[in-house]
Amino acid sequence: MSQPPLPSKPPNIQAELAKERNRAAAERTLMAWIRTSLSLIGFGFGIDSVVSAIFSFQAVQNLDRVRLTRLLGLAFIGLGIYALVTAAIEHRQELLKIQRNADYFYKSRRSLGLTVAIGLICIGAIAFVGILWKAIT
């Protein structure tokens, strides 16, 4: 049996360890986004379930409030799904960058955390205005 050909130059151990640290950091980041997304999705289901249960026990149901809370719950679920899908795509892109043999340079990109924060601000503002509107009218 012939032995496989040896690489022309030995691998740089420091560079390989740095790639492994970057890969591990990308895994931790993805896991953090998975936890955040599951919390948002769970919160959305919780809002819908609790409010639906409360209004199902009352003789007179206020359909507008149920609809508002259902939309609020769906907004949290949608934001959680968006964060999860975007985090998975960014994670895959990061792994592909690490695996390339080209130099690994920092490249500025849109912050997923800032995007989710803006989404939460929008959902909170809409919920606030909706609740305020119901209290005034």
Results as ranks from 00 to 15, higher is better:
92 R>D: 15
76 F>G: 03
67 R>I: 13
112 L>Y: 03
96 L>A: 14
83 A>E: 04
86 T>F: 06
69 T>E: 06
102 A>L: 13
102 A>G: 09
89 I>A: 13
72 L>E: 08
101 N>P: 09
70 R>A: 14
77 I>C: 06
109 R>H: 09
107 K>E: 14
81 I>R: 01
88 A>G: 11
99 Q>S: 13
110 R>G: 07
111 S>Q: 02
114 L>N: 13
113 G>L: 12
85 V>P: 08
84 L>S: 06
87 A>T: 00
88 A>C: 12
87 A>F: 00
80 G>E: 04
94 E>F: 01
86 T>A: 14
107 K>Q: 15
75 A>Q: 03
80 G>D: 05
106 Y>V: 09
83 A>V: 02
93 Q>A: 14
75 A>R: 02
101 N>L: 10
105 F>L: 15
67 R>S: 14
88 A>R: 13
68 L>G: 03
75 A>P: 02
85 V>A: 13
96 L>R: 12
108 S>H: 14
84 L>R: 04
102 A>W: 04
70 R>P: 02
75 A>M: 01
79 L>V: 03
109 R>L: 04
103 D>W: 05
93 Q>V: 10
69 T>K: 03
90 E>P: 06
106 Y>N: 09
92 R>S: 14
97 K>Y: 04
67 R>W: 08
103 D>Y: 05
97 K>M: 08
77 I>A: 08
91 H>I: 03
79 L>R: 00
111 S>G: 03
73 G>W: 00
111 S>L: 03
91 H>N: 14
68 L>Y: 02
97 K>T: 11
72 L>A: 13
99 Q>W: 05
74 L>C: 05
89 I>L: 12
112 L>S: 05
105 F>I: 15
108 S>M: 15
72 L>M: 09
84 L>V: 02
93 Q>T: 10
107 K>C: 12
93 Q>M: 11
94 E>K: 10
103 D>M: 09
112 L>H: 02
96 L>H: 09
109 R>P: 04
88 A>L: 11
107 K>D: 11
76 F>Q: 02
82 Y>W: 04
94 E>L: 07
106 Y>W: 09
67 R>K: 15
67 R>L: 15
111 S>N: 05
108 S>I: 15
80 G>M: 02
100 R>A: 14
104 Y>N: 13
111 S>E: 04
78 G>T: 05
108 S>A: 15
92 R>W: 08
90 E>I: 08
100 R>D: 08
79 L>N: 03
96 L>W: 05
71 L>D: 12
106 Y>T: 07
77 I>S: 06
98 I>D: 01
78 G>L: 01
82 Y>C: 05
87 A>Q: 00
68 L>W: 00
103 D>F: 07
104 Y>L: 15
99 Q>I: 07
68 L>D: 03
103 D>G: 11
102 A>C: 08
114 L>I: 14
110 R>N: 07
102 A>V: 13
88 A>S: 14
95 L>E: 06
67 R>V: 10
86 T>D: 15
72 L>P: 01
74 L>Q: 10
